[in-house]
Amino acid sequence: MFDLDLRSRKPIYEQLVEKMKELITTEVLKTDEQLPSVRTLAQELTINPNTIQKAYRELEVQGFIYSLKGKGSFVNPIAKGTEKEKISELMQELEKLVLEALYLGVTVEELKALIIETDAKKGAN
């Protein structure tokens, strides 16, 4: 379920957040589905439970999951309005990144190739 690169410079909790977001947005994890407990996931991945807790907290702050005291964490049903807002925010962030990349000398062709490559990877998963 999770492919974590323990040698990556990216912190493990960030890798977990990205993977969980991917599983939620691709609907592998369904709305209101319960996530594994912090302790269970920590044992499965053989990592510190605090790392899992940090990832879950970040996902909750970003609105991807919600927690019920004594019950666990669940996939948050994303309302259509919220989804449109998130897309709008992402597009604004993407525009800034594209402008920065162009300023640094990345060509339009390289950006197009990256988008095509990323889309191909998404389709392969």
Rank of each mutant, 00 (worst) to 15 (best):
T82E: 15
F74L: 01
G123A: 12
K10E: 15
R9N: 15
E27R: 08
G81C: 08
R7E: 15
N48H: 14
K19V: 04
G105R: 05
L99Y: 14
Y103K: 14
I87C: 08
E93D: 14
K71F: 03
E58Q: 14
A124S: 11
K121R: 12
V108G: 00
M1K: 04
I47D: 08
E14D: 13
E89K: 12
D32S: 02
N76R: 14
Q53G: 10
K19G: 03
P11M: 09
L104W: 03
E14K: 09
V98Q: 09
I52L: 10
D32V: 01
V108Q: 02
L97F: 05
S73D: 02
R57H: 15
E58V: 10
D3R: 07
F74M: 03
Q92F: 13
T46Y: 11
S73W: 01
I116R: 07
A120T: 09
Q53W: 08
D32G: 01
L68P: 00
M1V: 09
K71N: 00
K21R: 06
A55K: 01
G105Q: 07
E18Y: 10
N48G: 06
V28I: 12
L102S: 13
Q62A: 15
E22S: 11
E33T: 02
P11T: 08
E109P: 02
E18R: 11
K30P: 00
E18A: 12
A55T: 01
V17W: 04
L16E: 12
V17E: 07
K122V: 06
F2N: 00
E83F: 06
Q15P: 05
P36R: 05
E93F: 13
G105V: 09
L104M: 10
G123H: 02
A120G: 07
T82I: 12
L41C: 02
S67E: 14
K121H: 11
Q43G: 06
L4D: 13
I24W: 09
Y13A: 10
R39W: 04
P77G: 06
T51Q: 04
Q53L: 08
G81I: 12
I24Y: 09
F2Y: 04
Y56R: 01
I115T: 13
Q62I: 09
K30T: 03
F64M: 05
V106R: 00
Q53N: 10
D32I: 01
T25P: 04
P49C: 11
P49L: 10
E14P: 00
E14M: 05
E83L: 06
L6T: 10
T51S: 05
L104V: 06
V75A: 05
K121P: 00
P49Y: 11
L16T: 09
E110Q: 15
L94E: 13
E85K: 09
